[in-house]
């Protein structure tokens, strides 16, 4: 337990001094501001554009839902990409350089490394996500007051859960290959596979990738919470299994 606390403290120091924290905070703050801005500015930019032949685009006035649509799109794409890039080296860099050897020979358990890294990355991700959500919510409320959000908790929870899944995936890839590229490629490979699987209609409902982009339909009440329960469970189970597998593989690994 003592070594868990010590190592987690080290993880936060590392995030601070290697600019991980600053980058995450800045990017997610930016996404939080950008989403309502885009929702507001896009219709104005488009309306009045003459496509020729007398067809003029008339865009409807933006609503709070447009702002949240931008939020999900931005966090689901740019946000996830930033998350992947900032945490791609979380375990790979240590294995690559051999910085864990001294600490492990001091009697620190190997699973401590994995759990501590997952915890500290999760805290950073959660904080940045909450920052983004709060900022976006504040702007949205300011411009489109008293908008109704259905299933708000589950809708916002699901994209967070997908982020957790990505962190577990990056750790697993790092443990498996021991370098940055292994970690990145594992993560991208899984995302591409899940996206391809999404072409099959009967898979869509159970595919974790649905959590990354599809929860607007929850917020605007097109779908019900029950539609997303199975995939939420599947994604959680997958994240936990990835962590367990990481520990098992790491315990057998020669370093």
């Amino acid at each position: 337990m003592k070594s868990f606390v010590a190592f987690t403290k080290k993880e936060f120091t590392e995030s601070l001094r290697t600019y991980r924290l600053v980058v995450l905070a800045a990017v997610f703050l930016l996404l939080g501001v950008m989403s309502p801005l885009f929702a507001k500015i896009l219709p104005e930019l488009l309306s009045g554009v003459d496509l020729g032949g007398g067809i003029v685009i008339t865009a409807p006035d933006p609503t709070a839902m447009d702002s949240w649509a931008q939020f999900f799109k931005n966090v689901g794409q740019m946000g996830m990409l930033t998350l992947i890039i900032t945490f791609s080296g979380i375990i790979a860099n240590e294995l690559n350089r051999g910085t864990l050897i001294i600490l492990l020979t001091k009697g620190m358990k190997r699973h401590t490394v994995i759990l501590s890294k997952f915890l500290s990355a999760s805290v950073l991700w959660t904080a940045s996500y909450l920052l983004c959500l709060t900022v976006c919510y504040a702007y949205t409320e300011y411009f489109w007051p008293a908008s109704i959000l259905s299933n708000a908790f589950l809708a916002f929870f699901s994209i967070w859960l997908f982020g957790e899944f990505l962190i577990a995936l990056l750790i697993f890839g790092g443990i498996l290959f021991g370098n940055l590229y292994g970690s990145l490629l594992t993560c991208l490979g899984v995302i591409v596979t899940l996206s391809l699987l999404n072409i099959l209609p009967y898979v869509q409902k159970y595919n974790p990738i649905a959590l990354a982009g599809g929860t607007l339909s929850l917020l605007n009440a097109q779908k019900e919470a029950a539609d997303f329960i199975p995939v939420t469970i599947i994604c959680s189970v997958m994240a936990v299994s990835l962590l367990v597998m990481s520990i098992v593989v790491f315990n057998k690994k020669q370093i």
Binding site: K2, S3, A6, F7, K9, L103, K106, G107, M108
Partner: peptide
């Protein structure tokens, strides 16, 4: 200090 904390 990190090492010391890990050793306990």
């Amino acid at each position: 200090q990190l090492c010391g904390e890990i050793v306990g």
